[in-house]
Amino acid sequence: MIPFDFAYYQPSSLAEAGGLFAELAAQGKEPMYYAGGTEIISFSRLYQLFPRAVIDIKKIAECNMLEQKNGKLVIGAAKTLSQIQESNVFPLLSWCSGRVADHTMRNKITLGGNICSRIPYREAVLALLVSDSEIIIWGKQGLKKVGLNQVFHQTLLLEPGEIVVQLVIDQEVTRVPFTSTKQTMDGLVHYPQDRIGYPVVSIAALKKKNQINFAFSGVCSFPFRSTEVESFLNNPSLPWDEKIHQVAEKLPAEIINDMEGSADYREFVLKNMLSDIVKRLEG
């Protein structure tokens, strides 16, 4: 049971949602956009979040789109991970989304919710980072479209009141070779039916014009795609074994060290997974 009260609003347009947010924020209600609501409910129950108002975005048409148009794939932020997985319009995203939580949870968790989550893993983001996806955000100035890699640094950089509306992916990228692996405390996860759990390490990789794009979760306390790591790993003058051996020195932050996996263990898993990924993509 959530031990405090909040008000619930279900607007049907972006402007209405943004207007409500501004009004409620001015009243000191600390409003939150509400999509699947699974994180808001579970954190509120534990008194780790205290919104006085939630604004449900699920009835906003733009947030519910899933369409392929003019060479682009457009996915609304309120689409659930199950809907995305089942549509299989972008197989790498299906893989990454299909390993978040469990099947029933994925009927509720949304893509936008996973991207904006405060937990460190946010695995669906990996597919979007490596594919150079664009993100459409609604704010006071209206809609803007930006590269996700420009606005995702450890976390998605949103101004108060901004709404993630859609993700836009170049359809060409949905057809290039890719691979993705996740290891949990219990073992390797290749397919959704394998195992569930937060990742010890989760990697998505995609090969585009002889270069492999990599994104990581479970390694540092945030998901990332790093230019430094990527240009080092793609340096043709060094052999793969050597690059993988040295990869830990290039990471953007310390490796997580907790009860689900020590830093040493995570580094070991990271290197093994990278070797495996390179074998799969480089043959």
Binding site: G37, K58, N107
Partner: peptide, 27 residues
């Protein structure tokens, strides 16, 4: 668990399984 982990609270919403501990009644 009331945390989405165990599934003991599963109900169907329009035929789809959903964990009712992580859904608001108003939804």
């Amino acid at each position: 668990c009331k945390n989405g982990d165990c599934g003991a609270c599963t109900v169907l919403i329009d035929g789809q399984p959903i964990k009712s501990c992580l859904m608001l009644a108003v939804e």
